[in-house]
Simulated assay, not measured.
Amino acid sequence: MDFKRIEIIFLIVFSCLNIFLFTSYRQNQHVETTVGTQVTEKTSTKQQMKDNQIIVPKLSTKTYEGYYLASPVTSRTLEQHSSQLYNQRYSFSGDQLQGHFYQPVTGKNRAALLRNLKIVIKNPHQILYGKEYRYSKVFSTANRLVFTQKIAEGDVFDENGELVFSVSNQRITNYQQTYISKFTTLREKEDTISAKQAVQDLYNDNAITNGATIKWARLGYSRLLDANEHTVFIPAWFVAMENKSSGNIQIKHVNAFTGAVMKNSDNNSLATSSK
């Protein structure tokens, strides 16, 4: 095992320790709050959420397995292979490819537009590594069609592994793409928490406002930290909640190993819609 990999693993261990201590502290705070408001210990989290008018759909209690993964912070893979792209102009902003089709992708409705777009994505002279992306309905909006990078371990929900098409009047001309070319497994696989547990952990961390509606929960790989020119990814639950008064949807990330709310919640470029 080389020195860089050992250094990354040590950083992960220290980060996990900090997360554990922080989570324990917040849980102790929650217990004190519960006692202070005279809520008995027998009252379940489910009942507390119901009392606070938080609407939660039926969530799975199934657990999964995941890994600590690392990838280089900087990748020039798209730029190195961009010469094979035809019928478009393109440029780069850092590692992000920004493309403009000479002939727009069109469709008479949303479904037709998506079908035609998927044909384009499969063409390696139109989209690089297009077959390695999966359409994400929950992250897409009326004016954005979002595809997330898929890897052997699952889907990557991160701005460094996404393909986003801009939609205007059922026409697509522009897109942005990032791509993670290589992942290294740092540790043996571990069990994750369930979607139901992730939502309960969010509530216990005071991350769900009263009256909110939980719209969905998805498991994908999210950035944990940057260390020694590498980015470390872990499985995370992405939980979307709708604000009762504004109707806006907010997405929180929960560490699927520890249940801690991740600091990069609400800072990712992936978007969602209340529709």
Results as ranks from 00 to 15, higher is better:
F233R: 11
F165N: 12
T185I: 11
Y25K: 15
Q27L: 10
K118Y: 01
P235N: 09
Q80V: 08
Q170V: 05
Y25S: 05
M241Q: 14
Y133L: 06
Q170F: 14
R144I: 05
V73W: 05
K108P: 04
K131P: 01
F22R: 14
S194V: 12
E79K: 13
N206H: 14
T45D: 08
F238T: 01
L163N: 11
Y179N: 02
S93H: 09
I119H: 09
T141D: 02
P104N: 07
R223V: 08
K118Q: 15
K263H: 10
S194M: 01
R110G: 12
L224H: 01
T45R: 10
A240L: 10
F157M: 01
V167E: 01
R134H: 07
E79D: 06
K252C: 03
T40I: 10
W216G: 01
E190N: 08
L21M: 13
I12T: 03
K137P: 06
P235E: 08
L11M: 12
F257Q: 05
D51I: 10
S273R: 07
P124W: 10
S91R: 09
Y221H: 12
E132K: 13
E229N: 12
V146Y: 00
L21G: 01
T185L: 02
P235R: 02
S269C: 08
F238M: 13
T258E: 07
Q103I: 08
F14P: 00
L163V: 04
F165I: 07
R89L: 03
R110C: 03
L113N: 02
K42W: 11
Y175F: 15
T192L: 11
A70G: 06
M241C: 03
K58V: 11
G94Y: 05
F14H: 04
H81Y: 15
N248Y: 13
G220F: 10
K244L: 07
G259N: 00
K58I: 02
S75H: 02
S222P: 03
T148A: 15
H100A: 04
N243V: 00
S274G: 05
P124Q: 09
A260D: 11
V232H: 01
K4V: 12
A70K: 11
L97F: 09
H230K: 14
K189L: 08
R110L: 11
A142R: 07
L117F: 08
I208N: 11
L186T: 04
I234N: 06
Q103L: 04
S60Y: 03
A195Y: 00
Q47T: 15
T192R: 05
E65D: 13
